[in-house]
Computed example of a mutant assay.
Amino acid sequence: MKELIETIVKPLVDFPEDVQVNVMEEPTRVTYHLTVNRTDIGKVIGKQGRVAKAIRTVVYAAGSSQQKKIFLEIGE
Score class of each variant (00 low, 15 high):
residue 21 V to S: 06
residue 43 K to F: 05
residue 44 V to Y: 01
residue 56 R to K: 15
residue 21 V to L: 10
residue 43 K to C: 09
residue 46 G to H: 04
residue 3 E to H: 11
residue 39 T to H: 14
residue 32 Y to A: 10
residue 56 R to P: 11
residue 31 T to I: 15
residue 61 A to I: 00
residue 7 T to G: 09
residue 2 K to G: 13
residue 67 Q to P: 04
residue 47 K to P: 01
residue 21 V to K: 07
residue 57 T to A: 15
residue 11 P to G: 08
residue 74 I to F: 05
residue 56 R to M: 07
residue 23 V to S: 11
residue 56 R to H: 07
residue 51 V to H: 08
residue 14 D to W: 09
residue 17 E to Y: 13
residue 32 Y to D: 10
residue 36 V to G: 03
residue 39 T to K: 15
residue 39 T to N: 11
residue 23 V to H: 02
residue 44 V to H: 01
residue 76 E to K: 11
residue 45 I to V: 13
residue 42 G to K: 08
residue 11 P to K: 12
residue 16 P to M: 09
residue 31 T to A: 13
residue 57 T to H: 12
residue 10 K to M: 06
residue 63 G to H: 05
residue 11 P to S: 12
residue 52 A to P: 05
residue 10 K to E: 02
residue 66 Q to K: 12
residue 48 Q to F: 03
residue 38 R to D: 15
residue 30 V to N: 11
residue 64 S to Y: 10
residue 23 V to D: 06
residue 29 R to A: 13
residue 30 V to T: 15
residue 59 V to C: 02
residue 55 I to F: 03
residue 46 G to W: 02
residue 66 Q to N: 07
residue 34 L to T: 02
residue 75 G to S: 14
residue 49 G to A: 04
residue 64 S to I: 11
residue 42 G to I: 04
residue 15 F to D: 12
residue 63 G to P: 00
residue 24 M to W: 05
residue 59 V to K: 02
residue 63 G to W: 01
residue 3 E to W: 01
residue 64 S to V: 08
residue 38 R to L: 07
residue 7 T to W: 01
residue 9 V to Y: 04
residue 63 G to Q: 05
residue 32 Y to M: 10
residue 54 A to W: 07
residue 3 E to V: 08
residue 46 G to C: 06
residue 24 M to C: 02
residue 33 H to D: 14
residue 6 E to R: 03
residue 44 V to P: 03
residue 58 V to F: 04
residue 13 V to D: 09
residue 70 I to R: 01
residue 38 R to H: 11
residue 64 S to C: 08
residue 59 V to D: 02
residue 21 V to M: 12
residue 45 I to M: 01
residue 7 T to F: 08
residue 41 I to K: 10
residue 3 E to M: 04
residue 24 M to F: 14
residue 15 F to A: 12
residue 45 I to S: 07
residue 49 G to D: 13
residue 59 V to L: 02
residue 15 F to H: 15
residue 26 E to C: 00
residue 35 T to F: 14
residue 75 G to A: 12
residue 44 V to F: 03
residue 52 A to C: 04
residue 40 D to V: 04
residue 61 A to V: 00
residue 66 Q to E: 13
residue 13 V to S: 04
residue 14 D to R: 14
residue 16 P to K: 08
residue 41 I to N: 01
residue 67 Q to I: 10
residue 25 E to W: 10
residue 19 V to G: 01
residue 73 E to G: 05
residue 46 G to E: 03
residue 46 G to F: 00
residue 68 K to I: 06
residue 32 Y to R: 09
